[in-house]
Design a protein around this nucleic acid. Sequence first.
DNA 1: CTTAGGG
DNA 2: CCCTAAG
Length: 681
Amino acid sequence: MVLQQRLDYGFNGFQVPATARRTRSTMRRAKFQRTVDKNQMCAFDVLATIAGKILQENWNPTMTTDTSSEKGHSRFDKECQNANKTFKAELSDEGSCGEKCFSPLSSQTNNPNCCLKEFPHPESDGHSGIASIVTSSSFMERVDPNNLVDGKSHKEMENITSNAKLDSPGYAEVSCCKLDGDTSRVKDELHKFENMPIESGTKMCCFEDPLDENHPALISLDDNAKLSRYNDGIPCSSLSKGCGDVPVVSRDDDEFFFGCSHPCTKPKSFRPMASIGDRIRKTLASKYSKVAQESKVDIHSSSDGYFKPTYHSKKYCYKRQRSQMNIPLKKRKLFNCSSVSNSKGFLRSGGIYYSPVNDMSHNAPGSSPGRMREDCGIESLEAHQQSALRCGGSRVKLRIRSFRVPELSIEIPETATIGSLKRTVMDTVTASLGGGLHIGVSFQGKKVTDDSKTLLQTGISLDNQLDAFGFTLEHNSSPSLPRLCAANSPHVPSLEIHQSPISPAVIHRRSQGNFDMLPELQVTNLGNFVESDLISTPSPINASLDKGRKDYKTLYTVPEMAEEELAMIPVLQKSKRSEIVQRRIRRPFSVDEVETLIQAVEKLGIGRWRDVKILAFENAKHRTYVDLKDKWKTLVHTARISPQQRRGQPVPQELLDRVLIAHAYWSQHQTKVTAQTASRN
DNA sequence: CTTAGGG
DNA sequence: CCCTAAG
């Protein structure tokens, strides 16, 4: 058996650009600016739309190493093996919007006089939804790892940190994962803003220098913008919403909610989602006491060396989405927050995120640097407001610096290619985003739960300390613990270690509202902002806590093992934690197996799959009788279709003929028996 | 737990 | 290959 050392990457969140991206080279932060009329658009809608817009985009991971643009396997491998350098995982939009592909929107962002762009509603339905937008993106946020680990050098950490989030440019390189949005998407999504007033462009132009790289997204909200409409339970984004399984909510702007503007081929059951309001209520009921949900996306390589995420999608119904968006439809269950166990299933969604407070001007009073936020689903997004950004007497302008997605964890072999790594990251990211998102709003340290309140009623006004205003992205699956952007009462999660001979050691965080984690990690979590680590540890021994690593929040090490053993991990985790649901690795039946199956069925008949299993596949542990039944089903189907329609490893026609014969015989036999039984009765 | 059937 | 109803 070949043992293969694996690298385990723990991404504690990708950085998602606040708005559309421009060129990769400029790496500017997008600014996003909209105007909302009074009472026409609730705040949640605006945020939801923005978040959804961003997350709808197709992401394509781009790996870069070190600070240079050098790419390549050898370089990367070297980096990984040294395990003391950093890498950057940049997710970009598949090159579809490269430098040659400026949208009208982005192409004007450098012109201060033309920073606004109006996009009339494409549909000539009388609506005149127009939004203003300013883009000036800078997605590269760097951090000096040496400053994060209590002075320890980065090399001492013996791992690769990933995605530290600081907003100060000019630091040494650090690995980070980013999601770059496609500018054109912004334009598309702006169409969703119907019934919105047209605001004079000149009114908006003066807020910020579009060339300023640090300028985040801007949202212009009316003071009286209501927070209510979001209560209708519409998620702002849901990548996993295939046309079929997810209800397309009938709503004026439902097209925005993913993609299914075209009728689905198959109507499926309508499964309404819990409204955000309900979830918030539930959340408050368990305020600060629930276990922080944390999940990982584990990716194991199959025997063919191709890396597969935990889940694979089967259908792609996403508007403008490409095949890389492998969001399994069934996974939506795991995102459903109605069940705690389910919510733990796929995404280890309890990320702890350390909000780097490098921009002190935006800090809430009394908040300490390195304040910690505890998430159960998605990284809170930073929403900084600037009173200087006011425009008009009754509008509140918010600045969202970036959206972030929850922690991700992937695992790949050392020998994996960069392409494999990209695919892995891609799958992981898309999977994590697949559950859809909700927006949470907190103000002055308190979660705003009444969606029907206006901003004024909530106390959000121009003269407020706007920094006390925070937004969070929440998974649909999340139990939705409240997350506070004001760090007055951060609840520090605890740690919980699970180790087994096979399953990786996992440190789970548990939100208890108090400090009960290991002191060492407490210090770390409070004092550092490193978002995630890449830990390459071939032995579970390294998973122990006292390794002097102070910057990690999650340890997830996988011992060397063979492929088949590796596939057992989720099973063990599932049985142990009752949370991890891992799809088994696909193992196509060989011709020999098919023949064996046919022989057994010919002998035993259909419908005795357990006997077939015992008779013919006793030693094939990975073939359950359900598998055999399924295989027979597919064999029959295969035999009935034309050879041109068949896919996969071809099965000899002779075997297929036997399948048909046996199936026909036993079907008839069974029906005879049934008929005889029925006639007897 | 097995089986059957839809996804 | 997953999920679930049904027995």
